[in-house]
C-alpha cells in the first residue's frame, strides 16, 4: 500500500473542509477501502477518517422513520433498530462477520455502492433518503450503477433516513467465501405500495424489480409473481453463479421475502 496523509476531523464541518483537499478520500470503517488500497486498486494521497465523528454516530427513531448516522457501525444498527425495523436489523446483522460489522459503517457501504452489498437493497426498497453535508438525495436518484452514486467529489453521507415499512424482509443468498450477497432481495410494503430491490444480481448494481412491485402491490403473496420471468440479460455472471442462475434466484428470493414478511 502506498502511504498517505491522515486526517481525523472531529466534526462534519471539519471533515468537509478536509475533503476539499486535493485527492482526499473519506474513510469510514475501511472494511472495503483498506483491502482495496492494499491491492493498489485505490491510492488516495489523503484519507479523512470520519468514523469517530460523534455527530455521525447515532440511531434515532423519529415519527415513523429511523434515522441512522453515516458513521454508524453495522453491529450498532443490528442491535438498535431490531425492535422498530427488524428487517433492517437482520440485514445489518448478516453483513460480513462480527469483526467486520464492528468496523464497517452504513455510510461507507452506501458511498461505495458495491453491486453485491446488502445496504443498498434496504435503502432502495425502503425509499430512504440519503442526507449529505449539502443536500438530501432520494434513493431512486442515488444509486447510479455499479460503484457509482449521485455523490459529488468530497460529498459526505451524514445520515440515512428510513421510512419504516409496514412489512419488510430481506433474503440473502450468501456467497460463502466473501459473505456478500450472491443475490439479495429486500421487499418493503408501505401504504403507497410494495417496493422490491435486488442486489448482487445486475451489472448495473442494485435495482428495483418493477414488475414484481406491481404484482405484489395488487396482492402481497409469493404466488403473485409466479409467471413473471426475470431476464438474464445484464445479470452478473461469474464463477459463483451464471446470469441465468442469478435471474432465477431473484424470483425465488423475492417469493421467500414476501412469505417471511408475513
Amino acid at each position: 500500500m502506498y502511504d498517505f496523509e491522515f486526517d481525523r476531523p472531529r466534526t462534519i464541518a471539519e471533515a468537509v473542509d478536509a475533503l476539499r483537499q486535493e485527492d482526499a478520500q473519506a474513510l469510514g470503517g475501511g472494511q472495503t477501502l483498506i483491502p482495496t488500497m492494499k491491492q493498489r486498486l485505490a491510492m488516495p494521497s489523503r484519507l479523512v477518517s470520519v468514523r469517530e465523528i460523534a455527530e455521525m454516530r447515532f440511531v434515532r427513531p423519529a415519527d415513523g422513520m429511523i434515522c441512522i448516522g453515516g458513521a454508524t457501525a453495522h453491529a450498532t444498527v443490528a442491535a438498535e433498530v431490531a425492535a422498530v425495523f427488524p428487517a433492517l436489523a437482520a440485514l445489518a446483522g448478516q453483513i460480513g462477520d462480527p469483526a467486520v460489522r464492528n468496523r464497517g459503517t452504513i455510510g461507507g457501504s452506501l458511498a461505495n455502492n458495491d453491486p453485491s452489498a446488502c445496504y443498498p437493497a434496504a435503502v432502495l426498497a425502503s425509499d430512504a433518503i440519503i442526507a449529505t453535508d449539502r443536500r438530501e438525495i432520494a434513493a431512486d436518484d442515488y444509486f447510479q450503477g455499479m460503484f457509482t452514486t449521485a455523490l459529488d467529489e468530497g460529498e459526505l453521507i451524514t445520515e440515512i433516513r428510513f421510512p419504516v415499512p409496514e412489512r419488510a424482509n430481506y433474503q440473502k443468498f450468501e456467497q460463502p467465501a466473501s459473505r456478500f450477497a450472491l443475490v439479495g432481495v429486500f421487499v418493503a410494503q408501505r401504504a403507497g405500495g410494495v417496493r422490491v430491490a435486488v442486489t448482487g444480481a445486475s451489472d448495473d448494481g442494485v435495482y428495483r424489480w418493477v414488475e414484481a412491485e406491481e404484482a405484489l402491490t395488487q396482492r402481497f403473496h409469493g404466488d403473485a409473481i409466479k409467471g413473471i420471468t426475470v431476464p438474464e440479460d445484464g445479470m452478473i455472471s461469474d464463477l459463483h453463479g451464471s446470469a441465468a442462475y442469478r435471474a432465477h434466484l431473484v424470483a425465488v428470493l423475492t417469493a421467500q421475502a414476501v412469505a417471511a414478511a408475513g
Binding site: 491522515f6 475501511g30 472494511q31 484519507l47
Partner: peptide
C-alpha cells in the same frame, strides 16, 4: 481469516483491516 482479531474499545476487530492511527 480472523487470526488478527483484537479488541478495540471492547469490540472485536480485524487488526489487519484497521490503520494504527484509527
Amino acid at each position: 481469516c480472523g487470526a488478527c482479531v483484537v479488541h478495540v474499545n471492547g469490540k472485536a476487530v480485524k487488526s489487519c483491516t484497521m490503520f494504527a492511527l484509527e
